[in-house]
Design a protein around this nucleic acid. Structure first.
Length: 557
RNA sequence: UGGGGAGUCGUCCAAUGGCAAGACAUACGGUUCUGGUCCGUAUUAUCGGGGUUCGAAUCCCUGCUCCCCAGCCA
């Protein structure tokens, strides 16, 4: 597995290095990636995955994949499968260490009993609403529950009855007995167990009480002997609770470390909102190529290495930030530039007739597959009298610095010939339908023996040999940098986030299969979509090439 | 406004009292049969105010701004 050579220093790397020096964990490094299976993984999770697996790899440790499945009403098997697939695809290996929080339900229950016996937990009969009211506010302390001082025996008995299903949902909870006046709200007698008569995707109807995150998570980390429990910033003020539980239980006690989650401009990272996009059909699914999900990026043509490199480049810190999409795009271009074979495809075809080229003649021209990879060799591409070029490569009235085709202008057809535009053919409405050009037979292959220079080189395909294909061009999903900040984020969706065109491709692409990636010269990197068939080729544009001309043109306007 | 965090180029992110670095982006130039790639050059930053120090992004004081927390979600 290849990732960036340069390791950018960050505080977590530093902590682990220091822990190893001081022998804090007997030189063990055990991390974990603990997703809740209630949605598909996104690029923000990729950052966490790369961090957790990356640290384990770098320090010769181990990273566990653990499903934090403590809430049966939101979790589904489909999600665990997608998560497994995505983490694997990113290139990481958890070995034997695939775990589920639900595997620890009995242990968690046993530990709860220990807590009760220590007088540190009690069964509360208050309703959710009452609990909310007595919790106090940010500035006002809470009040003790009237059930707070039940005897250990009564708590034990009630808790057992809760487990046996003798109470309906919401009628009782088990709470930690900490401090209702704590300035940290998480410490105001947090709920440990709630009653939920719901089928769990793995344990079925075995349980009708389910542990809350804070109770479950520390215990999971503890039984797995995690050393560094890395999570995001919003759990910072849960750490005192994490520590309290483990201390009271006198259990093995990992160190929780928080870092800033990834925010990417012009997209959203909230699972809830992503789910909404899927459920309401604003996108085609979790793997819609416009989605910031791992599966969406994969379908879009992003490679695992590009995502890992991205994760390394953006670094790890505690300050909230918004990463530029340009960074991600740079990473995928960088990777695909080395790997992707070049091919010619015309996205918006304009017919060109080479008037002095013999009718019925065809020749096969040598084209280099990848100038970045000499070993990739070359291929033959058919050339004939009628071709397609990109409509945008011709201007009837060329602006300044436009090097492409225009009336009377000469350009090179890549690997083919120099051609000169002689005539512009239009329909009754004035639309350009065809260009009549002449070619210089002496320039075969694309070089002029007389040393004549030409400023533009165009890609092309032979009309009679061309393949038809559907090409899907993607743009950012939202029109504003931080759509997630608005509740009404749907109104910020980019109406042009997908644009479908009928393209003409060189025939070598006839048998490509889903997942195949290439560069359409001068246009961008593309991959064959999973819905593509031999009869109906479908390509997704992964990312455009850097486009200097577009910038120049932008400035002219 | 109680508690917990965070403020360094446009965007990410380094520096651990000793020359404010790198990447992306941007601009310009070179190379080029992709206006791609590659190469070179350049621009731009320590939240404000005090203090300590020979020396402060870093330490102290003070102010400001931003983020998170009042689920029987994670």
């Amino acid at each position: 597995m290849e990732t960036l050579d340069e390791k950018i220093p960050h505080f977590i790397r530093e902590i682990i290095t220091e822990d190893n020096q001081t022998n804090k964990w007997d030189n063990r490094v055990v991390t974990r990636f603990p997703p809740e299976p209630n949605g598909y993984l996104h690029i923000g999770h990729a950052k966490s995955i790369c961090l957790n697996f990356g640290m384990a790899l770098e320090f010769g440790g181990q990273c566990h994949l653990r499903f934090d499945d403590t809430n049966p009403v939101k979790e589904e098997d489909e999600y665990v499968h997608s998560i497994i697939e995505d983490v694997k695809w990113l290139g990481f290996d958890w070995g034997e260490h695939l775990y589920y929080a639900s595997d620890y339900f009995q242990q968690m229950y046993d530990h709860a009993i220990i807590l009760i016996k220590k007088g540190l937990a009690y069964v509360d009969d208050q309703s959710a609403e009452e609990i909310r009211h007595t919790r106090g506010t940010l500035t006002k302390p809470g009040q003790n529950s009237p059930y707070r001082d039940r005897s250990v025996e009564e708590n034990l008995d009630l808790f057992e009855q809760m487990k046996k299903g003798e109470f309906p949902d919401g009628t009782k909870v088990l709470r930690a007995r900490i401090d209702m006046t704590a300035s940290n709200i998480n410490l105001r007698d947090p709920v440990i167990y709630r009653i939920l008569h719901a089928a769990h995707h793995r344990t079925g109807d075995d349980w009708c009480i389910y542990p809350m995150y804070d109770w479950a998570h520390g215990l999971e980390d503890s039984v797995e002997k995690i050393t560094h429990s890395i999570c995001t910033l919003e759990f910072e003020d849960h750490r005192p609770l994490y520590d309290w539980y483990l201390n009271m239980l006198e259990a093995y006690h990992p160190q929780q470390i928080e870092f800033a989650r990834l925010n990417l401009a012009y997209t959203i990272m909230s699972k809830r909102k992503l789910l909404q996009l899927v459920r309401e059909g604003h996108v085609s699914g979790w793997d819609d190529p416009r989605m910031p999900t791992i599966s969406g990026l994969r379908r879009r043509g992003y490679t695992p290495a590009s995502i890992r490199n991205f994760a390394e480049r953006i670094g790890v810190a505690k300050r909230e930030s918004m990463v530029d999409m340009a960074m991600l795009e740079f990473c995928i271009r960088e990777d695909l530039n080395k790997l992707a074979p070049r091919v010619m495809g015309v996205l918006d075809p304009l017919k060109v007739v080479i008037t002095n080229y013999p009718e019925g003649q065809m020749e096969e021209l040598d084209c280099i597959n990848n100038p970045e990879a000499p070993d990739a060799g070359s291929r033959k591409v058919p050339f004939s009298r009628e071709l397609f070029v990109e409509r945008d490569d011709f201007r009837e009235d060329p602006p300044k610095k436009f090097f492409r085709l225009g009336p009377g202008r000469e350009v090179r057809l890549r690997y083919a010939y120099f051609i000169t535009c002689q005539d512009v053919v239009k329909d009754a409405a004035g639309n350009i339908t065809e260009l009549h050009c002449t070619y210089d037979p002496a320039t075969k292959g694309g070089d002029s023996p007389d040393g004549r220079k030409v400023k533009g080189t165009l890609h092309w395909v032979s009309a009679q040999h061309a393949l038809d294909a559907e090409v899907r061009l993607y743009d950012r999903l939202f029109t504003e940098p931080d759509p997630g900040a608005k509740e009404d984020f749907l109104s910020l969706m980019n109406p042009d986030s997908i644009c479908v065109t009928q393209a003409k491709l060189e025939p070598a692409l006839r048998n490509v299969k889903p997942g195949y990636q290439c560069q359409f010269e001068r246009k961008g990197y593309f991959c064959v979509d999973k819905d593509s068939t031999a009869e109906n080729l479908i390509f997704n544009r992964t990312v455009t090439l850097r486009d200097t001309w577009a910038k120049i043109e932008q400035k002219l306007i």
